[in-house]
């Protein structure tokens, strides 16, 4: 990660991202307890529904106002076939800045990469990267080995397909898994290519504390990639063995979200490196 602050963004100022209507689902606690709001960012193909299933309600039940958005072209947001990573990060920052207080960004899968880019443009209270797909050729190699038929078309601008064996553990009933997979959409082809070609995220503004978690049995993100991601932010990953890539939908979804909320309840301090 480059440590230099970037002030000049002439190209971005000259070409602002086109506005779209974005789907935001929310679950707020009955009693305001002064907890920071959480904003869940789903990965490619997923929509806000993936978090509305279990995590939103659970977080609200523990006193955290919880929101989930669908990136443009996903879920209930407006279609955007030509979307780029920049447009996705813009969506996250727009929704985060619209929340009443400084938010915690929680990104899953490629949504974690979107969050990593958004962190350079919004001083989050904290960030959580769940099974982060930070892109790069190693991730591509792993995906190609495990699911060649689903991965190859994406190289030519087709849809990146994930199968249920990659996403879920065997504990999840087959019918549920099939139901979830059938709801998956697709990311813009340019955004898919950018998984390989994107520039490193710029340094996060406000130096938020970052938590990385995932599963060593994830068939999308290899354990080594998890460790690498955590090391970038100066920590080690929190591991939940036996779970698939979609930790928020898998049978034991309660464990990772409880770990995240416990970490936040301890009120991790922002980093103040000299």
């Amino acid at each position: 990660m480059s440590e230099r602050v970037r002030v000049m963004r002439g190209r971005e100022w000259a070409r602002p991202v086109r506005p779209v209507r974005r789907e935001v689902l929310a679950a707020t606690p009955e009693l305001e307890e002064g907890r920071p709001p959480l904003l869940f960012v789903p990965g490619f193909g997923h929509g806000a529904w993936a978090f509305a299933e279990h995590w939103l309600g659970h977080a609200a039940g523990r006193g955290f106002p919880a929101y989930a958005l669908s990136l443009r072209g996903h879920g209930g947001s407006d279609p955007a076939p030509e979307a780029t990573l920049r447009a996705y990060a813009h969506d996250v920052v727009q929704v985060a800045a619209g929340l009443p207080r400084q938010a915690v960004l929680v990104g899953h899968g490629a949504g974690a990469l979107v969050v990593a880019h958004a962190l350079a443009r919004y001083p989050a209270r904290a960030a959580v990267l769940v099974a982060p797909v930070l892109g790069g050729w190693a991730t591509f190699g792993a995906a190609l080995r495990r699911n060649p038929a689903g991965t190859l078309p994406a190289v030519f601008g087709g849809r990146l397909r994930l199968n249920r064996r990659q996403l879920f553990s065997r504990e999840l009933p087959d019918a549920d898994a099939r139901g979830y997979v059938s709801r998956l959409g697709r990311a813009g082809r340019r955004a898919q290519w950018q998984l390989l070609t994107h520039a490193d995220p710029e340094p996060a503004v406000g130096r938020p504390p970052v938590l990385v978690l995932g599963s060593p049995d994830d068939r999308v993100v290899p354990a080594a990639a998890l460790t690498r991601a955590a090391r970038r932010y100066g920590s080690a990953p929190l591991l939940f063995p036996g779970m698939g890539h979609d930790l928020m939908l898998d049978a034991r979804w309660r464990e990772p979200i409880d770990a995240i909320l416990d970490w936040l309840a301890k009120d991790p301090a922002p980093e103040h490196r000299p």
């Binding site: 963004r9 971005e12 100022w13 000259a14 602002p16 991202v17 506005p19 813009h90 920052v93 727009q94 800045a97 619209g98 443009r121 919004y122 001083p123 503004v205 406000g206």
Partner: peptide, 15 residues
């Protein structure tokens, strides 16, 4: 216009 007027880390609503 908006991109030149907003704080860089707290954008104005894009609508």
């Amino acid at each position: 216009s908006r991109p030149f007027t907003q704080f860089p880390d707290f954008p104005m609503p894009d609508d």
